[in-house]
Write a protein that binds this DNA or RNA. Sequence first.
DNA 1: GCAACTTACGTTCAGCTGCTAACAAGGATT
DNA 2: AATCCTTGTTAGCAGCTGAACGTAAGTTGC
Lengths: 253, 253
Amino acid sequence: MLAAERKLRIIELVKHQHVATVADLAKEFQVHEATIRRDLAEIEQEGLLKRTHGGVIVDKGANIEPSFSERVSDQLDQKARIGKEAASLIEDGDHVIIDSGTTTIHIARHLVSRKDITVVTNDINVAAELRDSPGINVIVTGGTLYHSSFMLNGMYTDTLLQSLHVQKAFIGTPAIHPIHGLTHPESQLVPTKQGMIRAAQEIIVVADDTKIGKVSLHTVAPISSIHTFITGSEASESQMKLFRDSGVHLITV
Amino acid sequence: MLAAERKLRIIELVKHQHVATVADLAKEFQVHEATIRRDLAEIEQEGLLKRTHGGVIVDKGANIEPSFSERVSDQLDQKARIGKEAASLIEDGDHVIIDSGTTTIHIARHLVSRKDITVVTNDINVAAELRDSPGINVIVTGGTLYHSSFMLNGMYTDTLLQSLHVQKAFIGTPAIHPIHGLTHPESQLVPTKQGMIRAAQEIIVVADDTKIGKVSLHTVAPISSIHTFITGSEASESQMKLFRDSGVHLITV
DNA sequence: GCAACTTACGTTCAGCTGCTAACAAGGATT
DNA sequence: AATCCTTGTTAGCAGCTGAACGTAAGTTGC
């Protein structure tokens, strides 16, 4: 294994587990502890993780992927507008998938007083938002809870998604690019998003303008699989044109 | 366990339980009390918790992340005691089912700082309590959200439960009777509870004393299928005797 | 309200574990 | 062949933990 690859995998592993010891990592990657320490020193230098005596821990302070509570408040106004617009695309009688995320939760908030809608979600926060709505039938996918989030993924999630067919799927993403499409930094979450896309006839991506143009490690879906993209009017005209030229129905709010 | 990890878990634990003693924490994390005191001194320095003589409490001044749902419920004190006792029956490495309910949620609250435990639950509130616990693997059963509750049931729940096998299941109930066993007023929820009981080797029922002697419409399980019953010491001696005579291992707290 | 008692706290010290830094060995590249 | 880069090894150093002990803070009995 390449040293650079090992470093990337250390970052991903620790972000998922929140903590790891030097001894654990040395055993995991079959290298000497000194090698792991050197890797960690470099990773810390880049500000991605925080070292402690005996191991490494995710850095709450200077994290590239901000913690959940931070992300919730980020771009709040834009996300609320996107959520409202997305909810307006849902018609009475529709069966829809709502992905996990800080933008998609706003879709749920705009559905609470609607009737005769079935919502499938892998986000327990979305489910909680709709629990008091008598007109909404909520189906939670089930699966393993992703640490420090409200998201379910894994085998059980994917199995259930395979047996479902809905009209529309509303997908959130941390990175969308007019050529590279949807990408995601965490490999574990990719199959779940792909399963949602497979299960729906129409794919609607929701993301605030700060996600546009970004590319992450793992490919989720090509731009051609996206029918509609809803984002804020903060997006630049040049960015918007690139998506329109790719055949995506772009809505800005 | 890493020192930094222990500190984070102490913070999590105290925020969930609102208060903890030095002795409790030392026992919980298997370290000397002096170590806990040193940790607490540092945590207080960071302004996250407030020390008192003999223990630690949450600092009212500090911004506390509000609980997923702070439900005011009856018998809060008794339910908390039952939850603590139930949690103590779970051993490291165990795979357990935690049923949905206002008593079972307290079991989850006492598990937040544990490690190497897999929790299967049909309650999205239980899942939310454990989402920040790196040592707990949380599997949500999936299914349809029961209106105005946090409970999942239905076909998907039952299917997933059929493919699982765990050591212990912690079942809540609105009615338990020494002859008629567990009963429930809602027929829809019966298959889910029965599925949980089938999936576990050991059945532990948790219920406050107000549930004792009640009988509802639908039978969930006979008294013979219950191995352990945990309730509050408020239960009368005559009630307790009837359960002991039925071969149930009765624990009162 | 005071004294005696109990419990908890802070500090010091020794032992252990992990860390840093310097050096050596093995490949890969030039 | 020389150089650079990465990894493993070693030795001395630093940080963490548990135990011990004197001190401080509550608690109880009078």
